[in-house]
Design a protein around this nucleic acid. Sequence first.
DNA 1: ACTAAAGCCTGGCTGC
DNA 2: TGCAGCCAGGCTTTAG
Length: 276
Amino acid sequence: MPEMPEVELVAQTLNKLVGGRKIIVAELLRERLAPFNSAADFAERLQNSKIMRVDRRGKHILFDLNNGHTLIAHLRMSGRFMLLPLERENPKYTHAAFYFADESRLVFQDQRHFGFMRITETGKLHEAKELKSLAPEPFSDEFSPKYFREILKTSKKSLKEFLLDQTKVTGLGNIYASEAMFLAQINPQVSANKVSARKAGNLFEKIREVLRESIAHGSTLNVNPENIDASYYGGGYSFGWRVYNRENESCVKCGTAIVRLKQAGRSTYFCPKCQK
DNA sequence: ACTAAAGCCTGGCTGC
DNA sequence: TGCAGCCAGGCTTTAG
């Protein structure tokens, strides 16, 4: 569900809330959450490990443990973390729980069961299949206008589908892909390899802009530990969408009705006048 | 090698 | 009020 800015904020918040804390006991309550680790293995690798820090790669959250392991977690559509006091019961759809010495616990809750976790050796983290084919981080030097122009040339997919491909560009999801194409005034149906160098350069800037803007909005929110994803469910950025979820509403630039179309089964929103 | 569709799940909303 | 059908910000797997 969340895209890169939301995952970034969740990771930052987790780092503040549980970074430096030691997991006394871990429970995998739904085995399929971590299909590559048995429940026993999962519990054993986390037990008595200290969370050194919490980071992000793409839309993955990484818990760096002091025992040579890293817990990879992906929220997918509906996953969320909550830090609960002892007296609070696990909410419905709690699939994992990590207990700390003060008896508070971090739970992972996921209504739609799409999220997943995996514990891997930190030394082999870059080999993990979830991470190894991800494109460079959007704010890294490696993700450059030149990289972006050249990778665009390799794909005949529609620009929208291309932007959602995490091996080409990492971090964008359905919302920010639409938003970035609107700001860059490019039609989402154009083939990736047909985007001109000038437009590609512009889109590159707009991708960074929407991500930066969203992080800035979310980070001003007061995040409730019991709902660590509050930054995007209740957050301010959803009010700032220019085209996303605005079918038939007026374009903020020219007043034309925003159009929704389906690409690869997903909704894309765009202004047919501004994005010819 | 590509692309398209199905699949994983639950729940909320819309329209009849 | 009930119910069918559609929708959901992600990603993988299977079929073609």
